[in-house]
Amino acid sequence: MHFRTIARPARLLATSALVAATFAAASAQAEDINIYTSRQPDLIQPVLDAFTEETGLTTATIFIDKGLEERIAAEGANSPADLIMTVDIGRLDAAKQAGVVQAVESATLEENIPAAFRDTENEWFGLTARGRVVYASKERVGDEAITYEELADPKWKGRLCTRSGQHQYNIALIAAYIAHHGEEAARTWVEGLRDNLAGRPEGGDRDQAKAIAAGECDIGIGNTYYVGLMMNNEKEPEQKEWADAIKVVMPTFDNGRTHVNISGIALAKNAPNKENALKLMEYLSGDEAQRIYAELNYEYPLEPGIAASEVVTSFGELKVDDMPLAEIAKHRTKASEIVDEVGYDDGPQS
């Protein structure tokens, strides 16, 4: 269904946006903890409900897909935001660089979250991990191991499909490649990926599985949790067919380990409910919350000793890259530049 858009004066649009933001902020202030999140609310609500049941503290979430840092910066000292919940090391690092978060000293967080998955200055903390892996056709790809480097091998020419190179998940992967091999090697690698593409990058990670199922390509790059979501999608059962057409291959760097990204959390700079917010941060890093994340969202818990779900375990052993995410984040800008320089999103050039 298509709706006709009626142009409105910029001043009216700006006023409407301000009124909406003010209303949302006022609504959030009625709660014990106010969360600005770029995560889909239905993915985090079960764990927030469990927190409320245990502590009696209530939460309010405001979903902000884009411009989260700008929103908090614009609100300044009057911002109702207590916590930022988001996905991708890039977004967490962007919040830090924008100066809208603050350091947290917590023995609980430091005990529960391994050092590689938290900021060196304690301004953000990972909560869950997802592997950036290969989706491979069960019919057309053998059981051989695949390294990240080998994805650029000409043997895959015309057989690879991915979403946009500029998407945050691919930028993080390219940044990890830079951290391991340097800028020039990464540029050559991205050129190889580009020329192995079956067509121009498009869609999301699930669309790459769909393309493999349709025979449009043989391998794709995607996050592990999407496979679990497809396998158990009752609302759109065709996604089960996409999942059934692929197998998960854990690609590795030369250290024998697989790149992962994270969902994470940070304490807002001017958090009005700082004490309550810290309680939620610590709860999210603990046993119960980590188990809920694992079972419902098909993500890997970061707290040591908490097992992944049976679905995720079926993907095979994930040996997590030990390159600190804070180090990977330093190369995000260069990774983005390389994508544009080689014309990745224009598709194969040879």
Rank of each mutant, 00 (worst) to 15 (best):
83 L>S: 05
43 L>C: 03
209 A>G: 00
54 E>S: 14
183 E>Q: 06
186 A>P: 12
173 L>K: 10
313 T>I: 12
109 L>N: 03
333 T>Q: 15
277 A>P: 07
252 T>R: 05
52 T>M: 02
46 P>A: 05
330 K>N: 03
120 T>K: 15
74 A>L: 14
44 I>L: 14
273 N>M: 07
26 A>T: 10
224 T>E: 04
129 A>E: 13
148 Y>E: 08
177 Y>V: 12
64 I>S: 07
302 L>A: 01
89 I>Y: 07
76 G>Y: 06
42 D>L: 04
167 H>E: 11
75 E>G: 13
126 G>R: 01
252 T>W: 03
159 R>M: 14
260 V>I: 15
71 R>V: 14
218 D>T: 10
22 T>C: 07
288 E>H: 12
4 R>L: 15
72 I>F: 10
123 E>D: 15
26 A>H: 03
2 H>R: 12
153 D>L: 06
89 I>E: 11
323 M>H: 09
49 D>W: 00
106 S>M: 10
218 D>V: 03
209 A>S: 01
102 Q>W: 07
11 R>V: 13
267 L>K: 07
201 P>V: 09
324 P>E: 05
30 A>V: 11
326 A>M: 09
188 T>E: 14
15 T>M: 12
281 M>H: 06
279 K>G: 03
165 G>R: 07
82 D>C: 11
17 A>K: 12
189 W>H: 09
317 E>F: 04
273 N>W: 07
340 D>Y: 09
211 A>W: 03
185 A>I: 08
136 A>T: 12
283 Y>N: 09
172 A>S: 14
6 I>K: 10
88 D>N: 15
140 R>Q: 12
314 S>E: 01
253 F>H: 08
163 R>I: 13
93 D>E: 15
21 A>Q: 15
250 M>N: 03
320 V>D: 00
158 G>H: 03
86 T>N: 01
177 Y>C: 09
74 A>V: 14
256 G>K: 02
119 D>V: 05
297 N>C: 05
104 V>E: 04
250 M>V: 00
342 V>T: 01
199 G>S: 10
168 Q>E: 13
52 T>S: 12
279 K>P: 07
4 R>M: 15
150 E>Y: 00
186 A>F: 11
63 F>E: 08
220 G>F: 10
124 W>M: 07
250 M>C: 06
260 V>K: 10
289 A>D: 10
305 G>R: 05
93 D>T: 13
156 W>D: 01
271 A>Y: 08
13 L>Y: 00
275 E>V: 08
184 E>Q: 15
15 T>C: 08
229 L>P: 05
304 P>V: 09
182 G>Y: 04
338 I>W: 10
178 I>D: 10
234 E>M: 06
331 H>G: 06
213 A>G: 04
216 E>I: 05
271 A>P: 11
200 R>H: 01
180 H>F: 06
47 V>W: 11
118 R>H: 15
298 Y>H: 08
233 N>L: 04
145 A>C: 09
171 I>P: 02
170 N>Q: 12
9 P>W: 00
48 L>C: 13
242 W>A: 02
132 R>I: 11
234 E>T: 14
269 K>R: 14
53 E>V: 04
324 P>N: 01
327 E>H: 00
238 E>K: 14
335 A>C: 03
316 G>V: 13
294 A>M: 02
286 G>L: 02
329 A>S: 08
105 E>D: 13
222 G>N: 05
77 A>T: 10
250 M>Q: 07
308 A>Q: 14
324 P>V: 06
